[in-house]
Amino acid sequence: DEVTIHLGDKTIRVDGLDKELLEILKELARRGADEEELRKEIERWER
């Protein structure tokens, strides 16, 4: 499953996201997290 996250004018595509992680990323994005913060969160989950 590829998920596309839209952040204002930026788009991040991620393969096979965990549903819980997806919810966390959506919440972070709502709070104004930037792409770098979201990537760090994704990397934390992948470990």
Score class of each variant (00 low, 15 high):
5 I>K: 03
42 I>P: 00
16 G>Q: 13
31 R>I: 05
32 G>W: 01
18 D>V: 09
4 T>S: 10
27 E>I: 13
17 L>P: 02
31 R>E: 03
34 D>N: 14
43 E>N: 08
43 E>S: 05
14 V>P: 04
31 R>Q: 08
35 E>K: 04
18 D>E: 09
37 E>Y: 07
36 E>A: 13
31 R>H: 05
15 D>S: 15
8 G>A: 11
20 E>R: 14
16 G>N: 12
17 L>N: 04
30 R>E: 04
14 V>T: 06
21 L>F: 04
9 D>S: 07
17 L>K: 07
45 W>F: 05
27 E>L: 15
35 E>L: 09
8 G>I: 08
29 A>T: 07
10 K>I: 15
39 R>L: 13
21 L>V: 02
29 A>W: 15
11 T>S: 13
47 R>E: 08
20 E>M: 12
25 L>A: 00
9 D>I: 04
12 I>D: 02
25 L>M: 02
32 G>C: 02
14 V>G: 05
25 L>D: 00
34 D>R: 08
19 K>V: 09
31 R>W: 09
7 L>W: 07
5 I>W: 00
31 R>P: 00
29 A>S: 07
27 E>D: 10
42 I>S: 01
13 R>I: 11
23 E>Y: 14
28 L>E: 00
19 K>N: 10
28 L>D: 00
8 G>E: 07
40 K>M: 09
26 K>M: 15
18 D>F: 05
19 K>T: 09
32 G>Y: 01
17 L>F: 09
10 K>P: 06
32 G>V: 00
16 G>S: 11
40 K>Y: 07
1 D>R: 07
7 L>Y: 06
28 L>S: 01
47 R>V: 09
10 K>L: 15
19 K>I: 10
47 R>P: 05
21 L>Q: 03
20 E>F: 09
40 K>G: 06
40 K>E: 08
15 D>H: 08
46 E>L: 15
44 R>A: 11
35 E>H: 06
25 L>K: 00
46 E>G: 14
33 A>S: 04
27 E>V: 09
17 L>D: 02
7 L>H: 04
30 R>K: 08
45 W>D: 00
9 D>W: 02
45 W>C: 01
36 E>P: 04
1 D>T: 14
30 R>I: 06
19 K>L: 12
6 H>T: 14
13 R>C: 04
6 H>K: 12
6 H>E: 12
3 V>T: 13
10 K>H: 11
39 R>Y: 13
26 K>C: 03
10 K>F: 15
20 E>Y: 10
29 A>C: 07
29 A>V: 12
41 E>A: 14
38 L>C: 03
37 E>T: 15
12 I>R: 01
38 L>M: 07
45 W>G: 01
8 G>K: 10
8 G>T: 11
42 I>T: 01
17 L>W: 08
10 K>S: 13
44 R>Q: 09
46 E>T: 13
26 K>E: 04
18 D>Y: 05
14 V>N: 02
42 I>K: 02
34 D>K: 13
24 I>H: 11
8 G>D: 07
10 K>D: 06
20 E>V: 13
31 R>S: 06
42 I>L: 05
2 E>A: 12
22 L>G: 04
40 K>S: 09
34 D>W: 02
34 D>T: 15
14 V>F: 15
10 K>G: 10
3 V>S: 13
35 E>R: 03
29 A>M: 15
41 E>M: 14
26 K>L: 15
5 I>N: 03
4 T>A: 10
19 K>E: 11
22 L>Y: 11
41 E>S: 04
9 D>E: 08
25 L>G: 00
41 E>Q: 09
34 D>I: 04
12 I>S: 02
22 L>C: 03
38 L>Q: 01
40 K>L: 10
11 T>H: 07
1 D>M: 11
24 I>N: 04
44 R>C: 08
27 E>R: 14
33 A>P: 00
30 R>Q: 05
39 R>W: 12
27 E>Y: 11
10 K>V: 14
41 E>V: 13
30 R>F: 09
46 E>M: 15
1 D>I: 13
14 V>D: 03
20 E>L: 12
13 R>Q: 11
28 L>F: 05
12 I>A: 02
19 K>M: 09
9 D>K: 05
17 L>Y: 10
1 D>G: 13
28 L>K: 02
21 L>N: 00
2 E>G: 15
27 E>M: 15
45 W>R: 02
25 L>Q: 00
40 K>F: 08
22 L>N: 02
8 G>F: 06
32 G>F: 01
46 E>F: 15
15 D>G: 09
45 W>H: 03
3 V>A: 14
33 A>V: 06
5 I>F: 01
29 A>G: 03
39 R>Q: 08
32 G>H: 02
43 E>C: 08
31 R>G: 04
32 G>S: 02
15 D>N: 08
2 E>S: 14
9 D>V: 04
30 R>Y: 06
11 T>Q: 08
15 D>E: 13
39 R>A: 07
10 K>E: 07
44 R>I: 09
1 D>F: 11
30 R>S: 07
34 D>L: 07
15 D>T: 11
37 E>Q: 11
45 W>E: 00
6 H>G: 07
4 T>E: 13
31 R>Y: 05
36 E>N: 08
24 I>M: 09
27 E>A: 14
41 E>R: 05
17 L>V: 10
36 E>D: 13
20 E>G: 12
24 I>W: 14
45 W>Q: 01
28 L>V: 01
28 L>C: 01
42 I>V: 04
2 E>Y: 14
23 E>V: 11
17 L>C: 06
36 E>V: 11
5 I>D: 03
41 E>H: 05
18 D>C: 06
16 G>M: 11
7 L>I: 14
34 D>G: 13
33 A>L: 05
21 L>I: 05
9 D>H: 07
42 I>G: 00
23 E>P: 01
47 R>C: 12
36 E>G: 08
4 T>Q: 10
36 E>R: 08
23 E>L: 13
19 K>A: 12
8 G>W: 05
44 R>H: 07
5 I>H: 03
23 E>Q: 13
28 L>T: 00
28 L>Y: 03
3 V>E: 12
22 L>I: 15
34 D>F: 04
35 E>A: 10
47 R>M: 13
46 E>K: 10
3 V>D: 11
33 A>M: 05
9 D>C: 07
10 K>M: 14
11 T>W: 07
39 R>P: 00
47 R>S: 14
32 G>N: 03
1 D>L: 12
31 R>L: 06
17 L>S: 06
17 L>R: 07
46 E>W: 15
31 R>C: 06
4 T>Y: 14
5 I>Q: 03
43 E>L: 13
37 E>C: 09
9 D>N: 12
3 V>F: 15
18 D>G: 08
44 R>T: 06
45 W>V: 01
27 E>H: 11
8 G>L: 07
2 E>P: 12
42 I>Q: 03
45 W>L: 02
33 A>W: 05
38 L>R: 01
18 D>N: 08
31 R>A: 10
47 R>Q: 12
40 K>P: 00
6 H>M: 13
24 I>R: 15
19 K>D: 09
18 D>K: 08
13 R>A: 09
1 D>E: 12
1 D>A: 12
43 E>Y: 06
47 R>N: 10
42 I>W: 06
1 D>N: 13
6 H>A: 10
37 E>A: 14
30 R>N: 05
36 E>M: 13
1 D>W: 08
22 L>H: 03
9 D>Q: 06
5 I>S: 04
6 H>Q: 15
14 V>H: 04
13 R>V: 13
13 R>Y: 10
4 T>N: 10
23 E>R: 15
16 G>V: 10
33 A>F: 08
45 W>K: 01
32 G>M: 01
9 D>P: 06
15 D>A: 12
11 T>Y: 04
26 K>G: 03
12 I>T: 02
41 E>C: 06
6 H>D: 12
46 E>D: 07
43 E>G: 05
21 L>D: 00
38 L>V: 08
4 T>I: 14
7 L>V: 15
15 D>F: 03
7 L>S: 04
32 G>L: 01
25 L>P: 00
10 K>W: 09
15 D>Q: 08
8 G>V: 10
45 W>A: 01
1 D>P: 12
3 V>N: 15
11 T>K: 08
13 R>K: 13
3 V>H: 13
36 E>Q: 11
38 L>H: 00
5 I>P: 03
11 T>R: 05
33 A>D: 01
22 L>V: 15
43 E>K: 06
13 R>N: 14
16 G>E: 08
11 T>G: 14
20 E>D: 11
21 L>M: 03
3 V>Y: 15
13 R>W: 12
35 E>W: 11
38 L>D: 00
26 K>W: 15
43 E>D: 08
37 E>F: 06
23 E>W: 14
27 E>T: 12
10 K>C: 05
14 V>Q: 03
32 G>I: 01
23 E>T: 11
40 K>H: 05
11 T>V: 12
29 A>R: 13
30 R>H: 05
35 E>F: 10
13 R>M: 08
14 V>S: 03
34 D>Y: 03
5 I>E: 04
13 R>S: 12
11 T>P: 07
18 D>S: 14
1 D>C: 14
47 R>I: 12
38 L>I: 14
45 W>N: 01
16 G>Y: 10
46 E>A: 13
47 R>Y: 14
7 L>Q: 04
25 L>S: 00
35 E>S: 07
12 I>E: 02
33 A>I: 03
37 E>I: 09
16 G>W: 09
24 I>C: 03
26 K>A: 09
39 R>V: 06
16 G>P: 04
14 V>K: 03
23 E>K: 14
36 E>C: 02
6 H>P: 08
22 L>T: 05
2 E>V: 13
11 T>E: 11
43 E>M: 10
39 R>K: 09
32 G>T: 01
39 R>H: 04
25 L>F: 01
5 I>T: 04
46 E>S: 08
4 T>P: 07
7 L>G: 04
29 A>Y: 15
8 G>R: 05
23 E>M: 13
3 V>Q: 14
28 L>M: 15
2 E>F: 14
22 L>Q: 12
21 L>H: 02
24 I>T: 06
22 L>K: 05
17 L>G: 04
35 E>I: 13
